[in-house]
Design a protein around this nucleic acid. Structure first.
Lengths: 126, 126
DNA sequence: CGACAGGTTGACGTTAACGTCAACGGCAGA
DNA sequence: TCTGCCGTTGACGTTAACGTCAACCTGTCG
């Protein structure tokens, strides 16, 4: 349970390049501290990175991941801002529900494809 | 229940451009018939397009969608080819399971974010 | 006949998300 | 002191997935 990480620590842990991590910082998704010239990552920054990568696996753009990250540390803004944040949250939820449905259907399809494939192999061996 | 479609029929139905559809054809994902110079799409081609778009919503690349399409009309190859197809199927299944897990976690997170947001709004109004 | 909506093929432009490379600084070990 | 290793900042290259535009054909409506 380290309390801080170097850039290569994170790169190794998540199997990405340091260039990628710096790129996320350029885009304003990460904001590590500095020790002299070097970047130092707190567990909070590491969590942000995890969120980004999870977003990637779900086909989210970095912009979308950025807005997801922002949901985690709200700016304690006014009601308008909170309403807009709430709207974003519900938008993402709808997105995820669509994906859930897509996955369900595709799972069924793949299951059938698998069966057909196994049948064909069995027939071949007969 | 039309038995064939023009390129703009499909573009309108799925809310994409004709350029996009032609692009998929360039990449070998679609293979419409021709009536003179114009493209004619059968229901089977339309289904392929649906598969591509579903893949897109799940963050699949066109290459991945291509291999998914190929699972639907197997080339009735030899056992080796079938085995490799089976491997691909299971790979996609694993991919989907990872996505399912990601979605579950993100749903919970968003639910909490939503609650925090609602609480903050309530506090603001108090 | 004219024009107009739909189709076609290139060819080039664009954006996101990095990869690659050059040129440099700092520090630990032999 | 020199050799690596890890880090840094630009700057430019690359790939996927289209968008945009020009130049053209083709059927049909008034």
């Amino acid at each position: 349970m380290a309390t801080e990480y170097s850039i290569s620590d994170l790169a190794a842990e998540f199997d990405i390049t340091t260039r990628t991590i710096r790129f996320y910082e350029e885009k304003g998704l990460l904001a590590p501290q500095r020790s002299g010239n070097s970047r130092i990552y707190t567990p909070a920054e590491r969590t942000k990175l995890k969120l980004i990568l999870r977003g990637k696996r779900l086909g989210f753009t970095l912009e979308e991941s950025r807005s997801i990250i922002e949901m985690y540390d709200p700016e304690h803004g006014n009601t308008d801002q909170l309403q807009s944040l709430l709207a974003k949250i519900r938008e993402k939820q709808a997105h995820l529900e669509q994906q859930l449905h897509d996955i369900e259907v595709m799972m069924v399809d793949l299951g059938e494809a698998e069966k057909n494939c196994l049948d064909a192999i069995a027939a071949e061996e007969a």
